[in-house]
Design a protein around this nucleic acid. Structure first.
Length: 272
DNA sequence: AATAGTTTCAACCGCCCATGT
DNA sequence: TACATGGGCGGTTGAAACTAT
């Protein structure tokens, strides 16, 4: 038997949210903050399940949600990330500012999934048509994808079943990270490894090499590529923990640049 | 204009993991 | 250590919107 329901379903509203419910929920969260979802409906005076409140807030009411069509850049990024991560929608969404996992999942299942299927059929031996151009994204399917999606054509890295609750840090392509070695100077020697605070390890992408990126105790960043430690003097700032788009590694503070850097990173041959 | 078929996406469900007791 | 709880995730559903006939 599974666990008991999160709350009694009796006497609760279900289905589409009304404008009034939205208003109540928004006002409550603005006043008291997120969390304590189970108690929230009672406190806010909503006849809804706590989970339902959480979902409504995260997928629809949150002020930082980006509305409107998914751009081509975003679409290509989704495809690349899906190739890499499979159906890890929350991880993919974490790299698309303002987009929710539900939105991306829906977009994949409705739009991109069909493209993937069409692509598979057109590239099957019976339908060996012209090959896709280099500019067209190759859609592949993870080994555990549901029926109807494309067959696996490239390696999908299945991450461990651990939740990525830590910071999402926009990576520079490995080649660029290596170059940061040039910034080392006698005045700024790397902190010896034994002085590093391993507890501050951040999961950049859940399940990848745990040493891929660390913060040194004095705030600089260390990466580990192909077993070789690389140092960067990039200072760690607390703000990076709050918003991954605000990163001093970037010359400009906007998300589109992030998408470019991430895409470039994902395209690099060095990527494991 | 009416109807049937298709698509979209918000919402729900069941399960899992982390944490607290 | 075992259990309960809270929060989060991916898969699925179904009503509404849209399109074709």
């Amino acid at each position: 038997m599974g666990r008991s329901p999160c709350c009694s379903k009796e006497g609760l509203n279900r289905g589409a949210w009304t404008a009034l419910e939205d208003k109540i929920l928004t006002a409550y969260i603005k006043a008291h903050g997120e969390g304590k979802w189970r108690n929230l409906p009672k406190r806010a005076g909503l006849k809804r399940c706590g989970k339902s409140c959480r979902l409504r807030w995260l997928n629809y009411l949150r002020p930082d949600i980006k509305r409107g069509n998914i751009s081509r850049d975003e679409e290509e990024l989704i495809i690349r990330l899906h190739n890499l991560l499979g159906n890890r929608w929350s991880l993919i969404a974490g790299r698309l500012p303002g987009r929710t996992d539900n939105e991306i999942k829906n977009y994949w299942n409705t739009t991109l999934g069909k493209k993937a299927k069409a692509q598979t059929e057109s590239s099957s031996p019976e339908n060996s048509g012209p090959k896709k151009t280099a500019t067209e994204p190759q859609i592949t399917k993870p080994s555990n994808s549901p029926p109807g999606t494309a067959t696996k054509a490239s390696q999908v890295i299945r991450t461990k079943a651990i939740r990525c609750t830590k910071v999402l840090y926009p990576l520079q392509p490995p080649s660029e990270v290596v170059e940061t070695n040039n910034f080392l100077s006698p005045q700024n020697p790397p902190v010896p490894e034994d002085q590093w605070n391993r507890n501050e390890l951040l999961h950049v992408i859940s399940g990848y090499d745990a040493d891929f990126l660390n913060f040194g105790s004095s705030g600089q960043i260390q990466t580990c590529i192909n077993g070789e430690e690389q140092y960067s003097l990039q200072p760690f700032v607390e703000e990076m923990l709050q918003d991954w788009t605000k990163n001093p590694c970037l010359e400009e503070d906007n998300a589109s640049l992030d998408l470019d850097s991430l895409e470039l990173f994902l395209n690099t041959e060095e990527w494991p």
